[in-house]
Design a protein around this nucleic acid. Structure first.
Length: 964
RNA sequence: GCGGAUAUGGCGUAAUUGGUAGCCGCGCUAGACUUAGGAUCUAGUGGCGAAAGCCGUAACGGUUCGAGUCCGUUUAUCCGCACCA
């Protein structure tokens, strides 16, 4: 009787659920292990076969760890806030909570069919008030902390207030939006509003004017990926860059720790590199260049001293460079169009031209700018700066190739050694001066160069006191020099920007913030969660306010500590609440911690729980979250670590990025002359002018089209005629993104219905290495299905009787099973599940061939396969007479002694040419090998009387003989 | 442009990490059992060759007794970042 997965799989899924087999406690004598999947966004489309790939891999690992005696935390939940549900709501009026609930139910149903070992008692949903209460709570903590650069740690804002009252800003080294200088007296003289204004400069969650993608038509800010070519992806409306007051998280404060932390975790090298690039740390120098202008033409010279500890005797401005060694090659300076100095230094003759350029540059969309990177544009201000080391007068230009958001928005241009400066100099015919050369006398005329010499190698030339020094030494010498002159210092710049945290959206976490006197204040913690209000409309309001503006009960009554109707806002006791919501990454940044103690109402998670679980041992998910989610989550965790909540600095010890599953689309070829004629792939030649048409992969099997189903598929194909090859219609195929419009979405439910969950699980693993991107291809699934049936037949006879007996397995079978134990154990530890599946196939083939029926071999095999195919393993385990679940069994030990051969046949090669085989006892030594070679030579003469000079002997492998 | 990877039969892949390349599966070929086969079982399947054998891991070169694996150059594909001074 064949294996009846349709009956057996649901039976055990029910058993696991009813017995609470996968329920996990936070206390347990066993060692702990935390296996986490990136939780899904429950979209309306349901799961496709790409989603479970990572879940299956992590489930195998979780089950393996359980069998090895670990208490395993393996939870699942939903990242339930997000755009699609809201867009759907705008179109249909259906509340996002309802569609989300429906989608979650569908996801759960699909997940359950695959037989995962999640502890569903710990499920979290980011849109659940009991969950987002803690997202809001964390936001309040971020608001109430600043970052102490000296201690490299977040500290309470209250400490900052005390400090300001005592010593003002003097000596403060904190992450901030801009450097401020004030005394204790000044601080103490300011009113509440003034102080709050200053504190905002330091808070880790802060409100500031930020340039954003604003889409007036949609009435919302859009993320970069929602904008293509200056138009919104949805609707195609124009998007402009606009300065708006937005919440941001000061993730830049943690830039260094986010870089350093990568040393401590196991992520793939490529992902670490991506994160390092994203943070973009670069070491260099800050240098102040004095202006060469009559003091009278500068309105407020003091404004130019911003950020300087000691004011310089002349007006100056700060630049950042990673190549201080090239300072002798500066031939012009460039300011970004947004630079505040432009207004002050531009000469009257140049004013019109400069202002026109600045206006043009500011109105250019980010997209336009990026598309025209190669185009050089800029304008001369008429003003000059002085090179502090050469005292040369150098012109100051404005150009949009200098970015406002990086460094100081001003650069010293060294056209000979920077490709962008080079292009600019060529375009405007500015001088180019070589100051770095391969060696001191290998200079050439840079005006003849095709491109600049950017490499950080060689020696300085034409460079005053650093001439002849190597680049590295020259950098240090220049930094020391400017430091000594009091006009510069060594500094580090990061490309990372603070994270914009507001969204003009409905379906997200409300900010626990109200405004008093236009200044934001946090709600009292005990009033959390601040629930998302009901609204009649999900679109932004007509006044441009976010959708929450539609809510009628939506204001903060400070005296009664409650949310009330906004008509009562009087700004005395009833204040307006923040109307934006938090972005998608808010809820997903700390969910792994909440799983440790998901029903706790008093705390994010108890100290006991986090002490027990520590952090995530293994995190599995797609690399598309490699920067966004991973960076925010690491930041979130580091902050919670600083304030004593998390116990580990890094949230995820090890990360596996599962490869993306692409779709494998099928095509039919329609004749151009005859719209009802379809020609099989291999006979559509030149004489047939054909058009490829996507065809639903569900009516194609092994690239063979099911003609009847095709005729029924769409009405226009009802009368289709075919030109066949070998009586079949062969479809073409191509790898594309898995998407509905390409009819290549493979739904896991269909495969479970047809082959069973175990087959799907094994097949997804068998497809190739977990980390590798690969197209979905169902063509090989039959082989895995066949394997499952062979496995079944090894244990169960045609009449459903158990074939396994209590006899002792023979040595050959024991060897087979022990080889499997060793191989599978190694493979799981290396996350190489595809080879484990091969090992199972080999093992079953061998045991079937040897007609092995003994329990001593088959029982360990059942446990071995349980992580991969838990349903059939559970059924066999019970048929073998066990009461409890196979999940509680013990991982079999490999008896290595059974793997050792008595003798080995060694291939021997002689000077790389001749090859023969020699038999040696197991564990033979070099001397024994040499002796065996000599003995073998007797009568064979291949050594021709010569002594072997060297015998290279690798036990169990091969011998090579070298002679003189 | 910069950075990171990858390259092995018709296809997905494997190779004990420097030691007999191609395990396992798909597909294909032949056969058996069958009224039938898109079921099952058996055998074969890198290329050339009748065979012995020769060649073969993107290309070329190097290190080594020995290279798919290490080093160099080139090519192709994929991914990430992209005026970041």
């Amino acid at each position: 009787m064949d294996y009846n997965f349709r009956e057996i799989e649901p039976k055990w899924q029910r058993f696991w659920r009813e017995k609470g087999v996968y329920h996990v406690e936070n206390e347990d004598g066993r060692p702990h292990f935390y296996v986490l999947d990136m939780f899904p966004y429950p979209s309306g489309a349901g799961l496709h076969v790409g989603h479970p790939l990572g879940y299956i891999a992590s489930d195998i690992f979780a089950r393996y760890k359980r069998l090895n005696g670990f208490n395993v935390l393996h939870p699942m939940g939903y990242d339930a806030y997000g755009l699609p549900a809201e867009q759907y709501a705008i179109q249909t009026g259906q509340h996002p909570a309802i569609t989300t609930e429906k989608n979650i139910a569908r996801y759960r149903e699909q997940l359950d069919k695959i037989g995962f070992s999640f502890d569903w008692d710990r499920e979290v949903r980011t849109c659940d008030p009991q969950y987002y209460k803690w997202t809001q709570w964390t936001f309040i903590q971020l608001f109430n902390h600043y970052y102490d650069n000296q201690a490299q740690k977040a500290r309470p804002i209250s400490e900052l207030c005390e400090r300001f009252a005592k010593q003002g800003s003097e000596g403060l080294d904190a992450a901030c939006t801009e450097h401020l200088d004030f005394t204790a007296d000044e601080w103490n003289s300011w009113d509440e509003y003034g102080r709050q204004h200053v504190l905002m400069n330091y808070r880790l969650a802060y409100l500031a004017d930020i340039p954003v993608n604003w889409c007036p038509e949609l009435g919302t800010v859009l993320a970069n990926d929602e904008v293509v070519n200056g138009l919104s992806v949805r609707g195609g409306y124009p998007v402009e860059r606009k300065l708006m007051r937005q919440w941001s998280l000061r993730i830049t404060a943690y830039a260094q720790r986010l870089v350093d932390g990568l040393e401590k975790v196991e992520y793939s090298d490529s992902l670490k590199e991506i994160q390092r690039n994203w943070i973009g740390r670069s070491e260099g120098a800050a240098v102040w260049f004095p202006l060469d202008v009559p003091a009278t033409s500068v309105d407020k010279p003091t404004a130019l001293y911003m950020g300087q500890v000691d004011p310089l005797p002349v007006p100056s401005f700060e630049i950042f460079t990673t190549r201080p060694d090239t300072i002798f090659g500066v031939t012009f300076m460039v300011l970004c169009p947004e630079h505040e100095l432009i207004e002050q230094i531009t000469t009257p003759e140049q004013r019109n031209e400069v202002m026109a350029y600045v206006t043009w540059a500011k109105n250019r969309s980010e997209r336009e700018r990026q598309a025209e990177v190669k185009k050089v544009s800029g304008v001369f201000t008429g003003a000059y700066a002085v090179n502090p080391l050469t005292e040369e007068k150098i012109p100051i230009w404005v150009s949009d190739y200098v970015l406002a958001g990086y460094g100081t928005g001003a650069i010293m241009a060294v056209p000979a050694h920077d490709s962008r400066d080079f292009a600019f100099a060529k375009h405007f015919n500015l001088p180019i001066r070589q100051v770095v050369a391969p060696s001191i006398d290998e200079t050439s005329d840079p005006n003849t160069w095709e491109e600049s010499m950017d490499a950080k190698s060689g020696v300085s030339v034409n460079s005053g006191f650093i001439t002849g020094m190597k680049v590295k030494d020259a950098m240090k010498a220049v930094i020391d020099k400017v430091d000594e002159m009091g006009i510069g210092h060594k500094t580090i710049n990061y490309r990372l920007r603070d994270a914009i945290f507001s969204r003009q959206r409905y379906w997200g976490e409300p900010f626990p913030i109200y405004y008093k006197n236009d200044m934001p204040y946090t709600l009292p913690e005990e009033c959390l969660p601040l629930r998302l209000p009901e609204v009649k409309e999900f679109k932004p309001t007509s006044t441009g306010e976010p959708p929450l503006g539609h809510a009628t009960k939506w204001a903060w009554d400070e005296a009664n500590r409650t949310v009330v109707e906004n008509s009562k806002i009087d700004n005395k006791t009833v204040f307006p609440l923040e109307l934006s919501t938090m972005p998608g990454f808010a809820g997903s940044s700390g969910y792994y911690l909440r799983y440790m103690d998901p029903r706790n109402d008093e705390r994010y998670f108890s100290e006991k729980a986090v002490e027990y679980w520590q952090n995530v041992d293994l995190y599995v998910g797609g690399s598309e979250h490699g920067t966004g989610h991973m960076m925010y989550a690491r930041f979130w965790n580091k902050f919670l670590f600083d304030i004593g909540y998390a116990v580990k600095d890094e949230p995820f010890k090890k990360l596996i990025n599962q490869g993306m599953i692409q779709g494998r689309s099928n095509f039919v070829y329609r004749s151009k002359e005859d719209n009802n004629l379809f020609i099989s792939k291999n006979i559509k030649g030149r004489e047939h002018n054909t058009v490829p048409i996507h065809v639903d992969i569900n009516i194609v099997d092994n690239d063979i089209l099911d003609i009847e189903k095709f005729r029924q598929w769409r009405p226009e194909f009802a009368d289709a005629r075919f030109e066949l090859e070998d009586g079949k219609y062969v479809c073409g195929w191509e790898v594309e993104k898995m998407s509905k419009s390409m009819y290549n979405v493979q739904n896991p439910d269909d495969l479970v219905d047809r082959y069973g969950a175990d087959t799907l699980r094994l097949y997804e693993m068998f497809l190739g290495p977990v980390e590798q991107a690969k197209p979905w291809d169902t063509n090989g699934i039959e082989g895995v299905f066949r394997f499952i049936r062979k496995l079944w037949k090894l244990y169960v006879g045609d009449d459903d009787q158990l074939l396994v007996d209590d006899s002792e397995a023979d040595k050959k079978d024991l060897k087979t099973i022990n080889q499997a134990i060793k191989k599978v154990t190694d493979d799981i530890e290396r996350f190489s599940f595809n080879t484990s599946v091969s090992t199972f196939m080999i093992t079953v083939n061998e045991l079937t061939a040897s007609k092995c029926k003994s329990r001593t071999a088959l029982e360990p095999l059942t446990v071995l396969i349980a992580p991969f195919a838990p349903h059939i393993a559970e059924e066999l385990w019970h048929r073998l007479g066990h009461e409890g679940t196979v999940c509680a069994a013990e991982w079999p030990n490999c008896d290595e002694s059974l793997l050792v051969e008595d003798t080995f046949n060694y291939p021997v090669s002689f000077n790389g040419k001749m090859r023969f085989t020699i038999e040696l006892p197991a564990g033979a030594t070099q001397d024994e090998a040499l002796a065996a070679v000599k003995a073998h030579n007797v009568g064979q003469k291949w050594l021709d009387g010569k002594e072997p000079k060297k015998v290279i002997f690798v036990p169990k492998k091969i011998i090579n003989i070298v002679i003189g």
